[in-house]
Simulated assay, not measured.
Amino acid sequence: MDGVGGRRFVRGVNGGQLPERRSWVEQIMGLPVSVLARGDRAWSAPAEAVVQEVFAELVEVDRVFSPYKTDSAVTRLVRGELAWSEVDPVVREVATRCDRARELTGGLFDAIPPGGGWDPLGLVKGWGVELASQRLSGVADLDWCLNAGGDVVVLCPSGRPFTVGIQDPRDPGRVVATVARTGGAVATSGTAARGAHLYDPRTGDPVLTGWLSVSVSGPSLETADVLATAAFVAGDAWPVVLSAVPGYEGLGILADGTLRASPGWNADGSEGSR
């Protein structure tokens, strides 16, 4: 391993040098999905193969669960073309997970929209990305960071953390805080990417809040993503939502740029906020 100008390299074929990091990006589920590998085997054939498996699995998740695809299981269920007894078991599993998420959040998260039907997208993204990320551990001695539109899963067998940036919801090109993680996940819910698209399942009304985003870190991306959504819906009470689930911490950003962190936000090695 050689270092030049602060960058690390590994020896390639015929003595050539390859950077220690390698990244891949695909557009899946309507958002950019990137994978970053770090380590001596970042440019190996097994690394390439496992990343393609991750992308293929996420394409399949989108095929089955997207409410925007006319032939997805979700769309056909809502149209009445499929009965629950006819769907693939994985669809029933996700429905069960959505029910658990509703119970976990006291109704702040719900896959049943105000107008009826079924839309599990708020859970499927985190669940699907976390499920796909498990394939990455099949290539030993590599650190991985999987980022799906700002929701991040990290696996660092080296013990060397990745630093995850928290985007400024008022300026997508600016990072307002960072958290360093060697494992687990970070998820964010808010208005930056899709505008005011969330509603309160308890009332059916749009969410009106002074918070622009809430980011949640913890062991599971599925849970962090659900909690981020529920916390954003809860408004000023978002820290109470997180305090009910051990192992998860949050950072909220107000419309004026003020940051508010839960007590343990920096406990996992974060570099803090600024």
Rank of each mutant, 00 (worst) to 15 (best):
E57A: 09
R260S: 11
P113W: 05
V164Y: 03
D2V: 15
T75I: 10
G149R: 09
D71K: 10
G115R: 12
S270Q: 09
V78F: 04
V94I: 12
A101L: 07
G80T: 11
D62P: 09
A192Q: 12
R38L: 15
L123K: 00
V186G: 00
D200R: 02
G107C: 09
C98I: 03
R174Q: 10
I166Q: 00
F9E: 03
D119E: 11
G173T: 10
W127V: 01
V61I: 08
S215F: 03
L121I: 12
A228D: 01
V78L: 06
W144P: 01
T70N: 11
S273W: 14
S133Q: 00
H197N: 03
G128R: 01
R135K: 13
S220E: 12
A177E: 01
P67K: 06
R41K: 11
L136A: 05
G257E: 13
W265T: 01
T182L: 04
W238P: 03
G106N: 06
V51Y: 05
R38H: 15
G116D: 12
G6L: 11
T70K: 14
A140F: 02
E60W: 08
P120V: 05
D256G: 09
V33I: 13
T203R: 03
T163N: 08
T223F: 02
L31V: 12
G15P: 08
E93D: 12
F232M: 04
D200T: 00
D151C: 08
A56R: 10
T182N: 07
E26Y: 10
L104C: 08
S189D: 03
E103Q: 15
R8C: 10
G39K: 07
R21F: 13
G195Y: 00
P246T: 06
V74T: 15
A187C: 05
S34F: 04
G159M: 13
R260D: 09
M29C: 06
V245A: 07
P206D: 08
P113Y: 05
A187R: 03
W118P: 02
R8E: 15
R22G: 03
F109P: 03
G250Y: 04
L155N: 14
L58W: 06
S44H: 04
G5Y: 10
S273V: 11
P219E: 14
T258L: 13
V74N: 06
R194Y: 02
A95M: 14
E20L: 14
T163K: 08
P161K: 00
A45D: 13
D151Q: 07
A244F: 01
P46H: 01
A83C: 10
G107N: 08
L136S: 06
P246Q: 02
S158F: 11
P246I: 03
G159I: 13
Y68P: 08
T229K: 07
G6D: 10
A83Y: 05
E103F: 11
L227E: 01
G252K: 02
T75G: 09
S217A: 15
P263D: 10
T223G: 07
E271I: 11
P172V: 05
G190D: 00
G184C: 03
G12K: 00
V4K: 14
P19A: 01
D110K: 10
G106A: 00
